[in-house]
Design a binder for these strands. Sequence first.
RNA 1: GCCGGUGUGGCGGAAUGGUAGACGCAGGGGAUUCAAAAUCCCCCGACAGCAAUGUUGUGCCGGUUCGAGUCCGGCCACCGGUACCA
Length: 844
Amino acid sequence: MSTYTPSEIEAKWQAAWADAETFKAVRSGDKPKYYVLEMFPYPSGNLHMGHVRNYTMGDVIARYKLATGHNVLHPMGWDAFGMPAENAAMATGIHPKEYTYGNIAHMKSQMQPLGLSLDWSREFATCDPEYYGQQQALFIDFLAKGLIYRKKATVNWDPVDMTVLANEQVIDGKGWRSGAEVERRELVQWFFKISDYSDELLTALDGLDDWPAKVKLMQSNWIGKSRGIDISFKRKDGGDPIVCYSTRPDTMRGASFIAVAPDHPVAKELVNGNPDLADFVEECRKMDTTEAAMEKADKKGMDTGIRVQHPVYPDRELPVWIGNFVLMDYGTGAVFGCPAHDQRDLDFARKYDLPVQNAFYMPGDETEVGTEALVPAKTEPVVFIDHFAGITDSTSQNAIDATIDYFEAQGLGKGQTQFRLRDWGLSRQRYWGCPIPIIHCEKCGVVPEAKENLPVQLPDDVSFDIPGNPLDRHPTWRDCACPKCGAAAQRETDTMDTFVDSSWYYARFTAPHAATPTDIDDAAYWMNVDQYIGGIEHAILHLLYSRFFARAMRMTGHLPQGTQEPFNALFTQGMVTHEIYQTTGDNGRPVYHFPSDITDGKLADGTAVDIIPSAKMSKSKKNVVDPDDILAKFGADTARWFVLSDSPPERDVEWTASGAEAAFKHLSRVWRIANDAASADGGHADQDADLLRAMHKTIIDVTNGVESFGFNAAIAKLYGFTGVLAKSKASAGAKQQATKVLAQLMSPMTPHLSEDIWALLGGEGLIANAPWPVADESMLVEDTVTLPIQINGKRKSEIAVAADTDKATIEGLALADPAVQKALGGATPKKLIVVPGRIVNIVI
RNA sequence: GCCGGUGUGGCGGAAUGGUAGACGCAGGGGAUUCAAAAUCCCCCGACAGCAAUGUUGUGCCGGUUCGAGUCCGGCCACCGGUACCA
């Protein structure tokens, strides 16, 4: 007998699938459609185990759905624009286009041997002009419908390299290449009006029954609907009033200062005549733009000298400060500080010696706030001090509502529903992205490119020897004719955020070469995605943007009216993690090392490295593991089996090399068992029922496992059934039947091996097209059950009873059990709990 | 900081509120073999005990329950996101 040789088997069956076009998706009326999609990869250069895990999961679903009678669409493409290509261009001189398409070719060559059931005829890369040209058409249509607008926004500016930096390129407030302190700078940029859909995107979460609750919760918190009030504070100097947004107007009695953002109009108006203030605002600018940096920074402020009047207690005067912790993007860019009931405000007040005054006490405890703010849950009753809205004992929740009513009635403020969600800035000052199809004409202003001139293609003749956007300094690319008046004009040199590319690719897969962004008939047939699979790191941004795009595309006629949400079901897999090996470089910055360069925690020269456990695999951190070796040594089926078997799919998995060997041994064993079964004769027919009962049980377990993404549990059951089959003395016919079913149940995970076994045992056609086995439930009824007996919740014994034994009989049997008799010592139990088919618990 | 998640043997992990540790890895022992590889069988949380068995045990503290890995409250650690990484 020959041995299990994956290299032969896998090439053979991949060719068979290709010849039969088994996975080509064609619209059809006689089967229900099923669209399964994994988040498409960024072509970083090498496939890593995270990809293998992700695509194998999707493949299991796709193959299972094919076997259960669905017309399956399972496409693949490339999220191909992005910064790494430009970084590579700066580092090595290779052109981003060459880098990207080279990486795609290599990764595709690594992906194809995995035997994924993909319809490669639909493949595209987002950097294909055919794709991004349609994206430009979408931009123009969105703009026409008022879904896109321009405004000023803050970016990270590297004053040495004279370039905009991504948040990732800012390390401890400094530019990653220049090391210069990053500044904030305002640029006019394009925005999607995603905030128009805040309420819609929030309420529609309720309908996403097959999304993980955690993702819906994260999105809900991100959108952040809150009810509050805009309160106007009159300036003593007669200037325009300062409007503060607050969700806690019930704490107004304790308001002791106003804080405005450093880029608030009030601050801007003052810096001219006040050098100290100007210095402070300048200092506030020297911080990167991330929320985390803002929130973690020391709270600093400076008095502007402006005083406002307390709206409820007119004889009280509040100072107006500039605070580095106030965000211009949220609310009105100004807040009132109530130190007694907000820890951050309290720290600020103590630091700058501002008054602290309670608005309420806890019942029976009139202690004034010291170093810890009094912040009870909004549902807890508190005692308000001379509350202006006529409230004394109340929860804050009720007091907030009453206070808003009071302010509105008094004409002091206006109730507001506020969302945390901000509009989506899409402009990027970079080369390797989709050009924004806009022309700036001296006469006509900002004009969208005419659709017949699309795609606006990126020029190839660019250089990356200096930082900044090469489109900006290209000698001729900007020059064009105004589509409106025909006069000489200039193209916009900003490109689009790469999140735009990935916000509609799922729709493009339904008609990847249509002359419009989508073909409405194809979209109507294939949409929505029935099962979407990807990393939890995309829980908010990518998924929220895609949900917005589906709505915007429907509004502009690019998706059918029935399409609301893009993804019916979502599964978020965990990440493949690996230790990071790090040393510190001369400049104090971390230096990363490849796992292959580390022996026993040391570099070759003996330098000890810091080990950071379980971090997301990332090329820049050099902790990526290549699947090539595994594939070369054991084949695709082993790699697929292993990544599914070792860990629950929603959880992170720490990559280790051991285990793949065991997976290979197991598949070799299955191969041997199948060959034995094929040549078996004789056997004991009286053993058949036991084998077939185990088979039917396994059909149920594996089917449930696949349906519920319990792949590791399904595989554990398959191990168990393989053991039963190996030991079985049943007749040849029963063994062959069981082996064919085993091959079928394994086929979503190990498609090549399964095809081979199927063919060996005379299965009809391809196993990929064979209908999924159905369990005979009548074979699963158990005659007897074993009931554990607990005494005071601890297991002491067990009894075997007929499955249909009534409670009273079980009670009698349990009490008669020697272990129970011993524990009781003649006493009567206090309580006796019998859960039929489950357990007996005796309380003594 | 804020939002979300995770925590179970030496390791990956299993367990509708019902026998904690399925299945696999690593380790130990044995069979087969001239020997090895491959394969097959057995053992394998900790402590005590020759053993039967007993005690203990799911990050920490507390609670609900006949019964908690699972539910609730409070902590700790780690991971993801934090709007220009993808």
